[in-house]
Amino acid sequence: MLDYDEVTFDLEYSIKEGGDDWLLKDLFRSKPKYVTIRHHQDATKMEQPEKTKKELPDGLWAKCDECNQIIYHKDLEKNLKVCPKCGFHFRISAWERIKFLVDTDSFKELFPNVCSSDPLNFPEYKEKIAKSRETTGLKEGVLTGTAKIEGIYLALGVMDFGFIGGSMGSAVGEKLVRLFEYATEHEIPVVTFATAGGARMQEGILSLMQMAATCQALNRLAEKSIIYISILTDPTTGGVFASFASQGDIIIAEPGALIGFAGARVIQQTTRQTLPPGFQRSEFLLERGIIDMIVNRKEIRSTLARLLRFHQRRNRVV
């Protein structure tokens, strides 16, 4: 399970795109959203079976940063990590996303061995990777594979914000490109869940090139008239938004997600403009015509199923 305190502490750096710096601090708004409250009297209950332990953070209660509601973890989990009181969408890990989304046991991971190298010999990069691996249990910032949603077979890519801010380096780019190529070859629809600060600074120009690599792979998918649905979750910014994530045939966002190209801090520093409340949130993007719809986490599975079914080949008349 992801420890957001840890992540915030570890990732106090910005990911920058297009001359813009994304401070992860900004992405975390004021405070980490996921505050765990230790319950001393329940210390014995902390010794939970291995499986439960992985799924739940330490402590039995979580506090919603939006409405301050104290929520019992099991209830939060049951509600797909959406606050039952105010509807605030907590950030979730890639594995949680997959668990909430796909038909039971249908996810088959592809390309699990593609990992980051350190081509620039960048200060503290190896340590950051090691730490992210430890906190997320992932080898890289994206999980790729095939799965079924209501019986419909698809290629699925899910990013994890806990892995160096979900940033896209060579390995994340390579896994996504392979996924798109796999889907092109097998003629299956593609769904991605983006959550990222942007391109990964630690791999310099090679990270930037992944924007082109992923986009061009989507072109090949399009040539075969295969649907690509992009789901933007909190936060999706910088070079990830400015590449594959904004190029879905259909673009869906979770409510309240921060989505944009440049960071608010950079915009304010550069332009001295005051930014309206709700700037760069899903609702703002819908109004500006940048996304197709906002869908609550609970309805994403059924929405995807409807859209995928709609695009099945046997439905075509031309």
Binding site: G19, D20, A242, S243, F261, A262, I267, T270, Q273
Partner: peptide
């Protein structure tokens, strides 16, 4: 130096414009 980081640029979809041009 970079695609312009501004309020209007965001409103008009700077990220989408950059990505579309790459595509």
């Amino acid at each position: 130096a970079g695609a312009y980081p501004g309020k209007e640029a965001e409103e008009r979809g700077q990220g989408e414009a950059v990505a579309r041009s790459i595509m």
